[in-house]
Write a protein that binds this DNA or RNA. Structure first.
Lengths: 191, 191
DNA sequence: GCATAATCCTGACAGTGTAAAGATGTAAGG
DNA sequence: CCTTACATCTTTACACTGTCAGGATTATGC
């Protein structure tokens, strides 16, 4: 294995990994393309060929973020006792992702830097949304119920990621989960 | 009135106004301190004396933003038929502010650039939170109810400000408001 | 093997935030 | 009134940023 081959091999993936690390350390607002390149051990202009500009890199990262977001929800849903419990668990997964990867959460939900007109990103976002719709329609809910569950889940997650909701931070994990379950249950159809 | 006095007179206020204009045009992530100074017709290092660094300016702007946020909610609450309607109207004001001033909304809720340890900012945020607590406790609600109403209001507002919730965008203003009222009512105590 | 394309680097440019030091006005005290 | 101190603003400088143009290197197709 040569020390530094001119061609990286899979620079695109390496840049994405470096970008995610950079993002979690500095946040969306402190994100630096040159720092990502340096972290990947490559020249500062190397990312341009793969992603165009900074927005392109962040768009690709947002696509990856959306799938990881959905993965976290899916993982939480396994073992659900019934359809209602499954919807509640999805909301808990929403929060879990926001707390585990706040920067990625901000990138996909509260940033203007990715190109949200990108077909890939639209597709990734739609997958997550359609999954939510499926959860609610299984319970016999309609548009209003989708909005209710989404808003409550997102509100708790976003406020918790920004450390705004200190009432929840103070509680023990069990008490916190019980509280959130109670809130989410209100948003389910036929409550 | 001389054209350009060396001392501005009230540069601090002028910079805050310029900063808000700059923020609404470029967003938090495109915010530039030098552009603010140029907009105020002053040297690029002038803001430093009044606000220290960029974070200081954005912190002061966030304090102003929080009071305007609360003003919007208060304005919506006048004319409420009862306590329940008042809480619902507060939620509608939450959304109104997020749509009218999305950049300011992002600054106070989803940005890491202001110094949220600043006493002024903490005080402004606490005022808004205590007002929410008052709305809920008047209805006989507890901690869980506060979280429910806040999360739903914030979720709807944040997702709408980011143009993520297209279900609501498509509706007419009347249908939209009716839908949101239905969601918020679920979060009130004794639903 | 050779032309071509893909990949990565170097160098340059305008723009950014911040710090230091100088310029200019204001205010206070004698 | 004059001077001394202070507040305010400018100028200059530096390191850093994203992006572009052009050159160097390697892989690929024929």
């Amino acid at each position: 294995m040569t020390e530094k081959p001119y061609h990286h091999g899979d620079l695109r993936a390496a840049l994405l990994a470096a970008a995610e690390a950079e993002l979690t350390e500095k946040g969306v607002e402190g994100f630096s393309l040159r720092a990502v390149a340096k972290r990947a051990g490559v020249s500062h202009a190397a990312p341009a060929h793969h992603f165009g500009d900074t927005g392109g890199l962040l768009t690709a990262l947002a696509v990856e973020g959306f799938t990881r977001f959905q993965d976290t929800l899916d993982a939480r849903e396994v073992g659900a006792t019934d359809a209602r419990d499954r919807a509640v668990r999805a909301g808990l997964g929403y929060l879990e992702f926001a707390l585990a990867r706040p920067a990625l959460f901000r990138l996909i939900f509260s940033s203007a830097r990715p190109d949200f007109a990108s077909p890939d990103l639209i597709a990734a976002a739609n997958r997550a949304y359609q999954h939510l719709v499926g959860l609610v329609t299984t319970l016999g809910g309609g548009e209003t119920d989708v909005i209710a569950l989404w808003a409550a889940s997102h509100g708790i997650a976003d406020l918790s990621a920004g450390h705004k909701m200190r009432t929840l931070q103070g509680k023990s994990p069990e008490a916190r989960e019980a509280m959130i379950r109670a809130v989410l249950l209100r948003c389910l159809p036929g409550a």
